[in-house]
Nucleic acid binder design. Structure first.
Ligand SMILES: [Mn+2]
Ligand SMILES: [Mn+2]
Length: 540
DNA sequence: TAACTACATG
DNA sequence: TTCACACACTCCG
DNA sequence: GAGTGTGTGTCTCATGTAGTTAAA
């Protein structure tokens, strides 16, 4: 058991960190929240943190029991008086009922409902029946508690972690040694200049999450919800990563309006976009709506995109009168081969089928995809990735510098990266050093390195098969365009018996087409005279 | 009773 | 909950 | 082959326990 104040201390650490480093980003609501929390008796604060880490939003008051909190009732009372929690009360019986166990619901219905069907009923049916009961019959239903201030907690988390994926759990996992983070001297400087920008980014993230939840559930939001989401997403975000997600969300939102048949509204949404993939879609939609001059104007704009990649590629090939891009064809410096196979197991992935086929031919093939380039770059550039540049590391639980996948990553570390590329190219750093690093840092959290994807044996085989100059070439390609660190790397690596025997294969099934980043990798490898080809598989 | 799921825990 | 990927489908030249 | 939508897999930490459901 951790010390009594452990969980509360973690939250206090976040708060203290935020107010001492980001005081200029703390607005009145956040300050008010922090003040109210700190004025609370310690035992009530401890209860708040405990519940913060639980699922919620409603909790049965009669089931709250924590040794470090002590008596529950005074803590609950204090939370409610401070406006940090609320009781469900006499209304919202639905929320209270939903927290009961199935057999407790049955007890409530005992004698009320027509004979035995309750005994057979499932929980949801019992719950529905209970909701029809008279209020007097519900007097004994336990009170329920819900926390308030979730918005402020999210704000604190975003400020501390500079993302919305990490939370208090990271403190615990780090303390337990389950997650081991690279020790880096941090310099807490965030992209936001004022609190209003933080709030706007929070609203963007919230809206983006809501839209992806709808997409995951294959549901279409109500008209009113779409309007609300549009408001949250219409102005640009401050943090680059938030802006990326905002642009994705805008495209989702536009497609929702198209579902409703409202092209004008979809166009209006896309007009708020600042980058891929929404602006390309905007261009297509303008063209398909017959707004040619606008489409061409936007196309010209995309041509000069600072991003330099997806949007520019699109703009070069887009044909407004057709409303789509002109085909790339199979043009490229790489080779293609064909192979016909019989599909024994339709659930088996095509890469696996090819892998096994190649294994029968004697060689070994591994399904690596993007994991491999991450592994290589992560190991070869470990110290450079974790170099404490200004604004790169802002808290002790980072798996990478904040700008790792951004365009400027390389230029900000140009000298060190070029030097390391030279060491790789001339062999003074190579497989040996990478394997040493694998041993020395095994398990340390690194956004690039999937420690459990390959066995030590596989890593050794891979690294020994790839000559140092090849490693350098692959790293150079990826670092010149950071999205290639996680997109488009070929499916398979072939390993021969002798060192230096290797090859890369991109497997394509019928109807699967090369994506831009895959073309980029194939082109780079082929131009560097590395053995690489596309394998077009047909089913017999 | 047992498989299965959800979740709180550290 | 994210993200990249394969795949199924439509539409087009 | 381009575009769109959909499903899947994925390093989400591992483990014990409570709760639900359906079968014995
Ligand atoms: Mn692939
Ligand atoms: Mn493939």
């Amino acid at each position: 058991m951790p010390p009594p104040d452990y969980y509360r201390a973690n939250l206090e650490r976040i708060i203290h960190w935020v107010e001492s480093h980001y005081g200029h980003l703390v607005d009145a609501p956040l300050l008010g929240f922090v003040t109210r929390l700190r004025r609370l008796p310690v035992h009530a604060q401890r209860l708040y943190v405990r519940l913060l880490m639980r699922r919620g939003p409603w909790f049965r008051v009669d089931r709250l029991a924590y040794p470090e909190v002590g008596p529950t009732a005074p803590a609950v009372l204090a939370l409610c008086l401070a406006g940090l929690a609320e009781l469900a009360g006499a209304h919202r019986t639905r929320e209270r009922l939903a927290l009961l166990r199935s057999d407790e619901l049955a007890d409530l219905l005992d004698g009320q409902a027509a004979d035995g069907w309750i005994r057979e009923a499932r929980k949801n049916d019992r719950l529905a029946a209970c909701e029809e009961l008279e209020p007097t019959a519900l007097a004994s239903v336990p009170e329920a508690l819900a926390l308030l201030g979730a918005e402020q907690v999210l704000c604190l988390q975003l400020l501390f972690f500079a993302n919305d994926r990490q939370d208090l759990v990271d403190f615990i996992l780090a303390d337990l040694g389950i997650l081991r983070f690279e020790p880096v001297s941090v310099e807490p400087v965030l992209p936001w200049r004022e609190a209003s920008q933080v709030r706007r980014d929070l609203r963007c993230l919230d809206a983006a999450d809501e839209l992806s939840a709808f997409a995951a559930a294959a549901a279409l939001p109500e008209w009113g919800a779409l309007a609300r989401l549009e408001t949250a997403l219409k102005s640009p975000a401050t943090a680059t990563r938030v802006e990326v997600r905002r642009n994705r969300a805008l495209l989702r939102l536009a497609r929702c309006w198209l579902e409703y048949g409202d092209e004008r509204r979809a166009l209006a949404v896309l007009a708020h976009a600042s980058g891929a993939p929404a602006r390309e879609a905007h261009c297509r939609l303008l063209a398909s709506c017959g707004e040619m001059e606008a489409a061409e104007r936007l196309q010209a704009q995309l041509m000069a995109a600072p991003d330099g990649d997806a949007e520019v590629q699109f703009a070069k090939r887009f044909e407004p009168d057709r409303g789509r891009c002109r085909p790339l064809g199979r043009t490229g410096p790489w080779r293609s081969r064909r192979l016909t196979l019989v599909r024994m197991d339709p659930t088996e992935r095509i890469e696996q089928v090819v892998m096994h086929t190649l294994a029968q031919g004697g060689g070994q093939a591994l399904h690596v995809e993007n994991a491999l380039i991450g592994l290589i770059v992560g190991l070869a550039f470990w110290d450079i990735v974790f170099a404490p540049l200004p604004g790169a590391f802002v808290h002790p639980f980072q798996s990478a510098p904040l700008d790792l996948f951004e365009a400027g990553f390389r230029s900000r570390r140009a000298e060190a990266i070029d030097a390391r590329l030279c060491e790789l190219a001339n062999g003074s750093s190579g497989s040996k050093q990478l394997l040493d690093r694998w041993q020395a840092r095994f398990g340390t959290v690194n956004a690039l390195v999937p420690w459990h994807r390959f066995s030590a044996r596989e890593v050794q085989r891979i690294l020994e098969a790839l000559p140092a100059p090849v490693l350098a070439c692959l790293c150079k390609t990826a670092l010149e365009h950071p999205p290639l660190l996680r997109r488009g790397f070929p499916d398979l690596i072939l390993l021969g018996d002798a060192p230096g025997h290797f090859g890369f294969i991109e497997v394509k099934g019928p109807g699967d087409v090369l994506r831009p980043e895959q073309r980029r990798w194939l082109g780079a490898m082929a131009n560097a005279r590395l053995p690489v080809h596309v394998l077009e598989v047909r089913w017999a």
